[in-house]
Design a protein around this nucleic acid. Structure first.
Lengths: 203, 203, 203, 203
DNA sequence: AATGAATGAGTATTCATTCAT
DNA sequence: GATGAATGAATACTCATTCAT
């Protein structure tokens, strides 16, 4: 990488880092492009050289943050699978969910930022577009999980949809509002519900 | 009602009606107070005479629209109960869900407007505050439904939370994005999931 | 006084009382006519029946408050004169100044309200117009004081002007800002300055 | 200075000049930011690029105008001191006062604009903050003047306070209202009063 | 004498975006 | 690649005043 190209990376990364800081502390709509370039120490025009507009930098941040969550979850699942080669599908799903939920619980600012963006729609994009989250073949991973034990499903896509919608919605509201109970209290009920949902989709 | 008071109602209703039209066609943030008063044919100050600010008129619209959905659902449940006095709890819940979902399906603009406002948080407010939705004693209704057949529950509040979060999130995304399938296709899976969730909460 | 006329007085007095409360707590420009009529418990139109506009009610309040300050000062001077029939002119002036300053010191809100209105311009109006402050013949009182001991003056009007401007300006700033010292500390210097000024005007 | 930087100065100066013109003809509160940018021939946003808000441009104008008054007064005093090395303190003070008063008399609009801002509070700020009025070390100048002849004072700060309050208040009212006499008529009395005040503070 | 609904002109301020340098 | 001065449309909200009842 040449020195110029390196410098370019530095400015871009500074914009990403500072905008994330501002979005999570002041809120997205209360953060202006001016705020971002001031924090990043670059000129206004520079922002528009690297990103189309505010939504563009937001999309990049979402992809980047989600990638991290999924990679961690994926690694944790692999470790569980190594220790226990015959995990039922529902337990694998719960391991992934638990990984993501635990990471989010430690970082409420990230929850607030991802807001409602971390829903099924996002996974569909990731599912279809292998380049959205580089290095994470979401489709293959999911297909591998649900067919690992020779199970057959009524509608595996709608099963995933149902589970993701339930998790994303309930966990988001609990972390953001703190009601109707703590995440620790809710988790057993949530995981039991997931197991029950998986069961209804099994043929 | 005197002529003045009648006139007053007319202006207020005109503001509510026109703002709803604009919110659902142009979007909330793309609708300015100026747009609203122009459509309603009143002066700017008049808006602020009847409503505190933009959020205030939005809140009134949400409450009004939700009230209608719940009233209709409540009536439909009553008719079912009359025809079949021994309905299981899960079927009662599904009747209510089905009523609301069907109404929303006919009115995607309403879904878009209610956005994520029609979630558990809203029902909690309605649950606690009898005056939020006048004439709908949400708490009593829910308590009556879940205890109607002598059932006992692990945690009835978290059961309601889980069901509402699942329904609101999945139905919202399907109606808004049309993916991953139609509401008609999804309903059976959704209702089976609800039945399974209720079962996990039964002692 | 008939019952109707009594009622009229009540509303008017309520407007005066509440507007003074609001002016001194929220500040004049931050107090709207709406605030006043809400506090007074009357309709907006009623305000405009009793007062021309905001400035009109402010003028009435200034006159009323000043009248009280001057009446008290006048009575105190009379008591001193009774006890000591041969008071020099400068001491009489200082007695009046001290009375007003002491009253103002106890009521900083009044100082803030009177702001810069309690200056020479106001006394000139009172001096010329016997009806501005009913019952206080300012001109006669001043003429009586300065000629009481057979003194003759270079220019008695400019003497009064100089003294009033010095007192009103310095006392206002000290009470409002608390700088450069307390009123107690400043008084001896102020009174010595007044004595010195009077001396320069004596022929 | 580059062309861009020059252009920048031009816009800023245009805003300062035009806002001063408008403030002194229409009054401060009757001059809107729109008025200012229209007169200056720049866009609205440009105003907020150079100044924080209306008060900010007012503060800049006050500092700028005061600086000019003080610089002129300072130069005149120096000339007098050169001609007469043993001027008494009171005469030095009167020379400064006379300089400022004469300048203000020629420019009643400036008096109206400076309003009550040119009082002791302002000089205290300038006294403490050497950067408020660049190039005018107010504190040093005053200290030099009052100690030049080996005089000792009861309280030199309160002496300055008393004199400034008297001058600013009386001169302001005469220039603005024209009463109770002309400035020419008043000056001898004012200067005699100042001399008398200085005398009372001398130990 | 009193009401209070209705007015609408008016104001400060923000901010994404551009483009000449 | 980078700058940052300049833009100007857009917006929410206020409030003194009126007048039909």
């Amino acid at each position: 990488m040449g020195k110029a190209e390196e410098n370019k990376k530095i400015k871009r990364n500074s914009l990403l880092l500072q905008s994330y800081k501002l979005f999570t502390t002041k809120g997205i709509s209360d953060t202006s492009i001016s705020d971002i370039v001031n924090s990043a120490g670059v000129a206004k025009g520079t922002f528009y050289f690297y990103f189309k507009d505010k939504q563009d930098i937001i999309d990049h941040l979402i992809a980047h943050k989600s990638e991290h969550l999924l990679k961690t979850a994926s690694e944790r699942l692999r470790r569980h699978e190594n220790a226990n080669p015959h995990l039922p599908v529902e337990e694998k799903i719960i391991i992934i969910a638990d990984s993501i939920i635990s990471d989010l619980e430690k970082d409420p600012k990230l929850v607030k930022f991802l807001n409602r963006n971390l829903n099924f729609g996002f996974y569909v994009k990731a599912y279809q577009d292998e380049n959205l989250i580089p290095g994470i073949p979401v489709k293959e991973a999911y297909d591998r999980i649900i067919s690992s034990n020779g199970d057959v499903w009524k509608n595996s896509e709608l099963m995933l949809y149902t589970i993701i919608e339930l998790i994303s919605s309930s966990v988001h509201d609990i972390i953001i509002s703190g009601t109707p109970c703590s995440l620790t209290t809710y988790k057993p009920y949530l995981f039991d519900s997931i197991r029950a949902i998986v069961e209804t989709f099994r043929i």
